[in-house]
Design a protein around this nucleic acid. Structure first.
Lengths: 259, 259
DNA sequence: GAACTTTATTAGACTGGTCTAAAAATGAAG
DNA sequence: CTTCATTTTTAGACCAGTCTAATAAAGTTC
């Protein structure tokens, strides 16, 4: 019923992964260079060179040697389709099977290649056509439309009230930490002062109450406190696990290998 | 939570398919010869010879050249695990996502290799630990135990009252036909006369009402009628699609390639 | 038990996806 | 514009899984 009468140019899950990565890189407004793609996929550069040429030949992307790749409309459609499947599956695992938000990514990563269109359309309906996944990422609709929002990076935010728009990191440990600490999509908090922390939180400015306090250690780690416990000055805090874990991830805040 | 602390000798889905087929053949009390395995998997005999030797080396089965293969305990455990996954997934697709029983097999065939143990244990709980799949096949429990029942083949059945125990055929068209006609696991019916039909129906003698009549055309096709419409003598009937479809499948009633 | 048929195995090759190591192009710095 | 460092591509190889064609066991018949 769902997606009939379309040329099913079925591709391997490997190809799907390459397209997904190129889309992700393009979304970050970076050039999809051989090495960048290789880092995301954790394969050798030479492997990527080969593959990009194959994908070019298949009409899924443009590829200029020594420069990089860019999705064609066709490649983009396929990549967005996988993105949709991934996020819908994450939502399904979270809502229907009770997975923690730190558990959904890995499973969706495999399932996105294996489930049928029927499966996807059934869980879509079951979830009542959700607009976001458990991380707050927007789910492209069945036609492949995605509303791209201008999220605010934590590092760009002026002091004020915000809510967490999305968390762009899929590391289970880190997400479990955020969860423990009560920081998830839609959580509201007060940013005390500007911070250079580049972490995976994307924010939405917000007027309203501020139930949570979010601050920054000297080391660069983030920490979160109920507002009533807010310290006078946001400096060091003997919160061992929090410091450790947040620190770990703040360190790798650039881009590669984060998802 | 479910299946921790066990050596995860992860194998490819291809290997899982080979093991599954050998288990299936052994369950039919046949010798898992090279060519029989090859027919089930739809690959060349030479391919199977290679693979059986690899699987022997991996300790998953015994293999005697020019004779055939037999699962080792380890191979059997793995095969039963896949069987469990397959049937649980079928039940899940049917019950939770509303798949028709003719649709579940194909999807489960892919998913059984892709989902995690967590996924399986979650759907198991969600379905309240079902004992059978939509076709009436018994689902092995989490420890790998399976109760094997002595079902009656249609061809062995004397005239009398029965209910459908299970349908061991996964052809979507055929199953859709049986469904349309109201013949599924637990359906009760009256067998009018002994039939040489070797089809995929397994029966369980049953005392009770007989709402359905199942008979045999001269050609070997089956057909079904509500009891009140039952004809005096079970002969031809101008029910075109029924005759056609059932005939198609009764023809290939032996064993190979049926599932 | 010799001849023939069937079934199984070997031999050699191909594909997709990957690797390492070496060569080449690009780009940055003097 | 040369030189050096970085990035990318080429060359050659490997592995898993598959195929076809040729050969060799096993089984069947007379």
């Amino acid at each position: 019923m769902a997606t009939e009468s379309q040329k099913k140019a079925t591709v391997s899950s490997t190809v799907e992964d390459y397209l997904k990565v190129v889309l992700k890189i393009e979304d970050m407004k970076q050039r999809a260079s051989t090495s960048r793609v290789a880092r995301h996929l954790d394969v050798a550069d030479a492997t990527v060179t080969d593959m990009l040429r194959k994908l070019k030949k298949a009409g899924l992307l443009e590829y200029k040697p020594y420069y990089g790749a860019a999705l064609t409309p066709k490649g983009r459609r396929m990549a967005v389709r996988i993105l949709r499947r991934h996020r819908l599956l994450e939502m399904f695992l979270h809502q229907v099977l009770g997975y923690g938000w730190e558990q959904v990514h890995q499973e969706a990563e495999r399932l996105e290649h294996a489930v049928s269109d029927l499966f996807i359309s059934r869980i879509d309906a079951l979830l009542d056509f959700p607009a976001q996944d458990p991380h707050g990422e927007t789910i492209p609709d069945a036609r492949g439309f995605r509303q791209v929002e201008d999220d605010l990076c934590l590092a760009e935010a002026e002091p004020g009230s915000y809510s967490v728009r999305k968390v762009t990191n899929s590391d289970p440990e880190f997400l479990a930490y955020l969860d423990k600490v009560g920081l998830r999509p839609a959580t509201r908090f007060c940013l005390q002062e500007r911070t250079p922390f580049q972490g995976p939180l994307k924010l939405l400015p917000q007027s309203g109450r501020e139930p949570v306090y979010l601050g920054l250690e000297a080391s660069g780690s983030i920490f979160v406190l109920p507002l009533k416990d807010r310290p006078r000055a946001p400096e060091s805090d003997p919160r061992a696990p929090a410091s450790r874990m947040a620190g770990d991830h703040a360190g790798r805040s650039g881009d590669e290998k984060a998802g």
